[in-house]
């Protein structure tokens, strides 16, 4: 696991056909052992395809991968990218925090009480299946074009996902554990706090992760639709001046940031919340 990775990766993408059999064997062994090998291969294939498509070019508005990459580095170095993220993260974090507290709370109540389920579950089922994006223009009427409106856009997309997952998490708690708690005369409060919530935690957290993914969609929608700010502003501005490499770089960076955030959350989930799925 600790062998130097880079020579093999270069070999794999550069001269796959020419290598001697021992290199091929080492490579094959390496591919079996390391998942990251395939990550690199898979990234390399897409980036190469992108580069070629950009050089053809398939469209005047399609920069090559290298142009986009250098635009990204340029934006990162000249100090436009970081402030843009700081602005984008404000409504995102606020919206996700509100959705998490409200959503997990409501979801748990719906899971525990039949009356709350009857009253609220259908509303959130509709809201989750429905294209909430249609309502984004509406919030601007009431809350203008500031932070509140954007936060609300995030909440509108993230909240239904979190509520419904929390609700399902509570409803799918292991009934045998609940029986166990009853058989030892646990009170309803003990049942909720010592059995139901701990047992539901992994699914609650997974719901939160899905909510954050929806929140990213929401914040981008808000920044493109309400007023351009943050990353949305970078995208809109560079598009308007036909600076396509920079525009692509901004889009790629937000997708990458969201992917890394979600991957980190998934790691936390597997590492700390699901002891039974943890390897070793």
């Amino acid at each position: 696991m600790h062998m130097a990775a880079s020579p093999h990766k270069v070999g794999a993408t550069g001269g796959a056909g020419s290598g001697s059999s021992s290199i091929v064997e080492t490579l094959a062994e390496f591919a079996r052992r390391r998942k990251s090998f395939w990550v690199v291969v898979s990234l390399a294939i897409l980036f190469t395809a992108w580069e070629i498509a950009g050089r053809v070019p398939i469209s005047f508005a399609f920069p090559t991968f290298l142009e986009t990459l250098s635009a990204l580095i340029e934006m990162a170095l000249d100090g436009t990218l970081l402030p843009a993220y700081l602005i984008t993260f404000q409504p995102l974090l606020l919206g996700v925090a509100v959705s998490a507290v409200l959503g997990i709370g409501l979801g748990i109540v719906m899971g525990l009480s039949d009356k709350a389920e009857w009253l609220l579950a259908p509303v959130f089922i509709v809201l989750q299946a429905a294209p909430m994006a249609a309502l984004v223009p509406l919030v601007t009427f009431v809350y203008g074009i500031g932070l509140v409106a954007k936060t609300l856009a995030v909440i509108m997309l993230a909240l239904p996902v979190i509520v419904l997952n929390s609700y399902k998490a509570v409803r799918h708690v292991n009934p045998s554990l609940v029986d166990m708690c009853r058989s030892f005369q646990g009170t309803r409060m003990q049942q909720i706090f010592k059995i139901i919530i701990p047992d539901a935690t992994p699914v609650l957290f997974a719901g939160l992760r899905l909510g954050i993914a929806a929140g990213f969609i929401g914040v981008m929608l808000a920044e493109l639709l309400i007023t351009p700010t943050g990353i949305g502003d970078l995208i809109t501005y560079h598009r308007s001046v036909a600076n396509y490499a920079h525009m692509y770089a901004a889009v790629a960076s937000i997708i990458a940031v969201s992917t890394l955030t979600l991957a980190a959350l998934q790691y936390v989930e597997l590492r700390f919340l699901r002891p039974e799925k943890r390897r070793k």
């Binding site: 045998s176 058989s183 005369q185 059995i195």
Partner: peptide, 19 residues
């Protein structure tokens, strides 16, 4: 009519808390 301290139950699926 309900569970009580004079009885204890052992479950078929163990009912252990995984956490």
């Amino acid at each position: 009519t309900g569970p009580g301290p004079e009885r204890a139950f052992v479950f078929q699926d163990f009912a252990l808390m995984p956490w």
